[in-house]
Design a protein around this nucleic acid. Structure first.
Lengths: 190, 190
DNA sequence: CTAGATTGTCTAGCAGTGCTAGGATTCGGG
DNA sequence: CCCGAATCCTAGCACTGCTAGACAATCTAG
């Protein structure tokens, strides 16, 4: 039955088209301006089509967030494991995190800033968040030195998250992003 | 002419009423649900009255933010200067910051999270932000130890901001807020 | 004290939002 | 070829921020 599968394939393609377009729109005009009408216009369908794929507009942003966190996990893992020693690994992880937030601000916003019931509601998102958390934990574990590892990980992640969001809101001097990451790592590892 | 002054007084009172009500509403139902109609209903006037006092809805949130940052500056200064030594001062400042964010999440959101053109546009808000920044700087200055003071201040503030926002978004274990602040201070001062 | 001007307030309405019900249209199976 | 089913769109609801214009209250001046 090639018919059914073709339909399903077309449907899956449109599903991805919606996500890709929503992400592009958000990155170019901001989530606040990503409306159902604009998004529908961009994919060349009427608004109700969106609701055949997602429960509501928020679910679309959540789906983008889940895609994003998967990307982010890869980025962090790669940064952490492709360095000679633990200190360089932590530094690379911090830089990679800030770079991702800076390069994909709308996706970062969807993951960590936008109001969402993603953390506890969805099925797989808590696992993804835990996986991302584990990357931070693995990177900082060599420097725990008697401190509670989980608490230290929360402190590290929060510190980077704060730099990412304040940086995006133009509250920090933009040219010193790297220096802040360096200093944070230095303070933690010393 | 007592007439004119009475009018001005009534107008100023209503101005404050709007701000107070907006703040209360935001703290109880969130900024997203603070609409012009609901706010007008709450102060027992029609919506257009709001626009006689503020340019738009965003300006109301900005005004709440300015009130909030003034409060926050006082809170930080008091925490910092009412301790025996510098380490205790920094710790008290960190705790006070997180406590304010936790006790007034909507105000904190108005100041630091909500999209706003407050930082550069308004006349007095940059000064207020700088004053708040100076409080952080004064608290951490004894521990700079050769590092660039301003960069270190940004790192401290970002770290606390990250803890405040992630905490509010239920991404951190709520009962360990104090432990995270302690650990952050310990890491910085050691 | 009254007439006119000014100030203040509200009703009604605009365009845009998320979301949905119902009809139209296209498609696949018999 | 025709009927049922899946698919899609038009139209509309209740809401949003914001504004124009009518109305009422108040102050000023004669």
């Amino acid at each position: 039955m090639p018919t059914q599968s073709r339909r399903e394939r077309a449907r899956a393609e449109r599903h991805e088209l919606i996500l890709r377009t929503a992400r592009e729109l958000a990155e170019s005009i901001g989530w606040g301006a990503v409306t159902t009408r604009r998004l529908a216009e961009a994919i060349d369908y009427s608004q109700p089509v969106l609701y055949g794929h997602f429960e509501n507009m928020n679910a679309i942003a959540d789906a983008v967030a889940i895609q994003g966190i998967e990307e982010l996990i890869d980025v962090l893992r790669h940064a952490r494991t492709s360095t000679p020693d633990a200190t360089a690994g932590l530094n690379a992880l911090a830089k990679a995190y800030l770079k991702y937030a800076s390069n994909h601000p709308a996706v970062y916003e969807a993951i960590f800033v936008r109001p969402t019931d993603l953390e506890f509601a969805s099925t797989d998102s808590p696992l993804l968040l835990k996986t991302a958390f584990a990357e931070f934990q693995a990177a900082i574990e060599p420097f725990a030195a008697g401190e509670d590892l989980e608490t230290l990980t929360e402190v590290l992640w929060s510190a980077l998250h704060g730099q990412a969001t304040l940086s995006h809101a133009s509250r920090l001097r933009p040219e010193l992003s790297s220096a802040r990451a360096d200093l944070l790592v230095k303070v933690i590892t010393s």
